[in-house]
């Protein structure tokens, strides 16, 4: 692990990237087994699963930034909201 020492890893950031990586691998396997068909949900554009993941993750990042920027409450709340947002976009977006 010394080879990665220069990257200044922390537990939370390692967990974050591990989750993102797991999602990407999972989505790739899912798409190989059952290719995504573009469809239209509540988002104003036709999206594939990958598009919805991107929109959900980007939206989650902005939810967290907004929360950190305007409140002093724990970021765990914004993380919970971001997970809900991601799930909603993936399912109904």
């Amino acid at each position: 692990m010394e080879a990665f020492e220069w990257m200044a890893w922390t537990g939370p950031s390692a967990t974050f990237f591990a989750v993102i990586f797991a999602i990407l691998v999972g989505m790739t396997v899912w798409d190989l087994r059952s290719p995504s068909v573009p469809r239209r949900g509540f988002l104003p554009l036709e999206t594939t699963r990958g598009d919805r993941l991107f929109i959900g993750l980007l939206g989650s990042a902005y939810v967290n930034l907004l929360w950190i920027g305007v409140t002093t409450l724990s970021p765990w709340y914004s993380l919970a909201m971001a997970v809900v947002l991601l799930a909603l976009v993936m399912r109904y977006g």
Partner: peptide, 8 residues
């Protein structure tokens, strides 16, 4: 990824 680590 390194930048994210630095930011924390």
């Amino acid at each position: 990824m390194t930048v994210v680590n630095y930011s924390l």
